[in-house]
Design a protein around this nucleic acid. Structure first.
Length: 554
RNA sequence: UGACCCAUGGUGUAAUUGGCAACACAACGGUUUUUGGUAUCGUUAUUCUAGGUUCGAGUCCUAGUGGGUCAACCA
C-alpha cells in the first residue's frame, strides 16, 4: 500500500488540488450534465468517470443534472436509462437527480435581472436577420435595431412573452454583449426563445425556454458547482459563461475544458447511431456492437473494465484517437481474473477413445486458474467426444501442437490421448478420429511421464448442449469513419460485424448460466448470456476473443 | 483570411515543473504454462521545424508549419 507510486496529476487534478490547497474551495463539487435525449455512450462514460472519480478522489460531491431545456427532444425514458447506466458503471450521484427545469423560475428571474441592468433586450428580428447580424467569424457583426430599445419595453415584452402573448419564434431575449467580438458566442447570444412544446417534467407551464448558455452555467452556480468540466468545443462559450456569472453576481463556478475521448472504429454521434438503428443495421441501441453503455453491457464488458479504460486513456487537451485494443485489453484483464472457464466446441469433429471402457468418468474442471477460490465444476468424459475441426490435421506443419496422426495431445482437465487413426468421407474430409488414452495421465494425478505439448478443449457428445454463439467484430472497417471528407460514414459499415455460430456444443455446466455471468470458453474467448437467450435456444455473445499468437503470421 | 485550443514512439498518456524522455496498449522475438490464454523478459523516439535564453530546454521566449474548434430560436 505504501509502495503505491504517486501517480502524476492530470491537469484537472492539478487545478483542483491547487484550489483546495489555496483554500479557494473547502470541498469540490462537480456535475455530470446529460441532456435526456438519447442513450449514453463510451464518450459519456469518460465524462462520467472524470466528474465522479475526480470528486471522489478529493472527497467532494457530484451532481447528476439533466440539462432539459429543450422540450422538443427530451423524454423521461432517457432519464431512466441514463440513471441506470451511471449506476451500472458504479457511481452514485449526490442527493437526488437534479434538473435544469427545476430552475426555470430562477432562470426567469435572472433574465429579468439582466434586462433591468440593461444587459439583455427583446429582439423581434427574424432568424435570418439575427444570423445576418451575427456575421461571420472573420468579420464583426452589426447591432440589431432592437438592441437599444428601452429597458421598460423589454421588461414588458419579456413578461408577455412568458404569458404566451406572442407566437413561437416571433421574438427572443438576447444578452447585450458585443456584436464585434471575434468570438461568435459573444455577439449578443439568444438566451430565451418562445417554444410551445410539452416539457417532459414541467408540462405546459412554460412557453419560453432558456438556451444552453443561459441554463448550464446558471445551474452550475445554483448548485455551487466548483469545477464544471466539459469538452473542448465549449471553450468558446467560457467567456460568456463568465460574463453571466459577473453580470448576475452569482456563485463563480469555473468551466474547464478537456479533449473528449475518441475510440477507433467507434462513432458517438447520436444522429448517426440512430441511423444504424433505423436502417436495421443493428438490432437496437443496445446491440452488442454499439458503443452505447447499454450495448457494451449486453456485450459483456464489465463496468470495471470500462472505468479502467477511462483511467488508462487519461485526460489532456489534444485531439486523440484511442486504439480499441486498449479497451479490449482492459476487458480481458478483468475477465481473466473473474470469468469462469468452460468448454465449448464451435466446429465439432468426432473423436472415439477406443480403449475407454467405462460408461463415463467425472472430471474436475478448474473454474479459474487465476483464482483458486473460484472452485471447480464436474465435467463428463465418455468414449465419444467432440473436439474442434481445427484442432486436427492429417499433415500438420512444423510447430503444430494439436492433434495429428501418431501424436500425443492432452484433453483439458482430462487425459492424454494418442491419435491412432482417422476416417475420411469420399471428399477426403475427416469425419472421425480414433484415439487411445493413457489411463495414468489424468489431470492432477498424472504419472505417465508423457509430455503433451498441446491441450485441447472438448465436450462429451452424449452430454453436450447446443448453443448459439454470436461473434462480433468492429462496426466499421475504418478507425475513423467520420474523418473522410466527401465520404459518408455508412460507406465504412462493416457488414461482417456479426457472425452467428449455430453449430457450437457446450459442456452441460453451461446451462446453469445466468444473465450477467461471464465465461471464458477456453481457447475461444469470453462470452456472456444474451438477454434474448431461452432454455430452448441458449444464446451467448462474444464479449471479446482471446489473444492468440498462433496463425497470426502469414 | 479573424479569434481560440493543441503538437512527446504505431496509439494513449507521463516526465519530481529547467536536470539521464517513463508507463500502458499494439507489434516483433524469447522464457514459463494442462488454455498457442495468463505471467514474465527483451526490442521499437532526431520530443513538428528554425532561431533564442541557459552550464543545461520536451518544458521558457520568438517565428513558422501542421491539426482542431467557433457563425442552430440544439446541447
Amino acid at each position: 500500500m505504501s509502495e503505491e507510486k504517486t501517480r502524476s496529476l492530470n491537469f484537472l487534478e492539478e487545478i483542483i488540488a491547487d484550489d483546495l490547497k489555496t483554500g479557494k474551495h473547502k470541498e469540490i463539487h462537480t456535475r455530470f450534465p446529460p441532456e435526456p435525449n438519447g442513450y449514453l455512450h463510451i464518450g459519456h462514460a469518460k465524462a462520467i468517470w472524470i466528474n465522479f472519480s475526480l470528486a471522489k478522489k478529493y472527497n467532494g460531491k457530484t451532481n447528476l443534472r439533466f440539462d432539459d431545456t429543450n422540450p422538443e427532444k427530451e423524454e423521461t425514458e432517457y432519464v431512466e436509462s441514463i440513471k441506470k447506466d451511471i449506476a451500472w458503471l458504479g457511481f452514485k450521484w449526490h442527493d437526488k437527480p437534479y434538473f435544469a427545469s427545476d430552475y426555470f423560475d430562477k432562470l426567469y428571474e435572472f433574465a429579468t435581472q439582466l434586462i433591468e441592468q440593461g444587459d439583455a433586450y427583446i429582439d423581434e428580428s427574424t432568424v435570418e436577420q439575427i444570423a445576418e447580424q451575427k456575421g461571420v467569424p472573420t468579420k464583426p457583426g452589426t447591432n440589431s435595431p432592437y438592441r437599444d430599445r428601452p429597458i421598460a419595453e423589454s421588461l414588458d415584452l419579456f413578461k408577455k412573452m412568458k404569458e404566451g402573448a406572442f407566437e413561437d419564434g416571433s421574438m427572443v431575449l438576447r444578452a447585450k454583449v458585443d456584436m464585434t467580438a471575434p468570438n461568435m458566442h459573444l455577439r449578443d447570444p439568444i438566451i430565451y426563445r418562445i417554444k410551445r412544446s410539452r416539457h417532459h417534467r414541467t408540462g405546459d407551464d412554460w412557453c419560453i425556454y432558456p438556451m444552453y448558455d443561459f441554463a448550464h452555467g446558471q445551474s452550475d452556480s445554483i448548485e455551487n458547482i466548483t469545477h464544471s468540466m466539459c469538452s473542448l468545443e465549449f471553450i468558446h462559450h467560457r467567456p460568456l459563461y463568465n460574463w453571466f456569472i459577473e453580470k448576475l453576481g452569482i456563485f463563480p463556478s469555473r468551466q474547464i475544458e478537456f479533449a473528449r475521448m475518441n475510440v477507433a472504429y467507434m462513432i458517438t454521434s447520436k444522429r448517426r447511431l440512430l441511423k444504424l438503428v433505423e436502417q436495421g443495421l443493428v438490432t437496437g441501441w443496445d446491440d452488442p456492437r454499439m458503443p452505447t453503455i447499454s450495448g457494451m453491457r449486453r456485450r459483456g464488458y464489465p463496468p470495471e473494465a470500462i472505468i479502467n479504460f477511462c483511467e488508462k486513456t487519461g485526460i489532456a487537451k489534444r485531439d486523440n484517437l484511442v486504439e480499441i485494443e486498449l479497451l479490449e485489453s482492459c476487458v480481458r484483464d478483468h475477465l481473466n481474473s473473474t470469468a469462469t472457464r468452460a468448454m465449448v466446441v464451435t466446429d465439432p469433429l468426432k473423436v472415439v477413445i477406443t480403449n475407454f471402457d467405462k460408461d463415463k468418468e467425472i472430471i474436475s474442471g478448474i473454474n479459474n486458474p487465476e483464482d483458486e477460490s473460484a472452485g471447480r465444476h464436474d465435467v463428463i468424459l465418455r468414449k465419444e467426444i467432440y473436439i474442434e475441426k481445427g484442432d486436427f490435421m492429417i499433415d500438420p506443419p512444423k510447430k503444430y501442437f494439436r492433434m495429428a496422426p501418431d501424436k500425443d495431445v492432452r484433453l483439458k482437465n482430462g487425459f492424454i490421448l494418442h491419435c491412432d487413426g482417422y476416417t475420411t468421407d469420399d471428399k477426403g474430409e475427416v469425419t472421425e478420429v480414433q484415439c487411445s488414452y493413457y489411463p495414468n495421465s489424468k489431470s492432477g494425478e498424472d504419472v505417465s511421464g508423457i509430455k503433451a505439448k498441446g491441450t485441447l478443449h472438448w465436450v462429451s457428445i452424449q452430454d453436450a448442449v447446443p448453443v448459439t454463439l454470436r461473434n462480433y467484430d468492429k462496426l466499421f472497417t475504418d478507425p475513423a469513419p467520420m474523418s473522410h471528407e466527401g465520404k459518408e460514414f455508412m460507406e465504412f459499415f462493416n457488414h461482417d460485424s456479426l457472425e452467428e455460430n449455430k453449430t457450437a456444443l457446450a459442456e452441460p455446466y453451461i446451462s446453469t448460466a445466468k444473465l450477467g455471468d461471464s465465461f471464458q470458453f477456453m481457447r475461444k474467448g469470453y462470452y456472456t448470456l444474451d438477454p434474448t437467450s431461452t432454455d430452448e435456444n441458449i444464446v451467448f455473445n462474444r464479449t471479446v476473443g482471446l489473444k492468440s499468437s498462433w496463425g497470426k503470421k502469414r
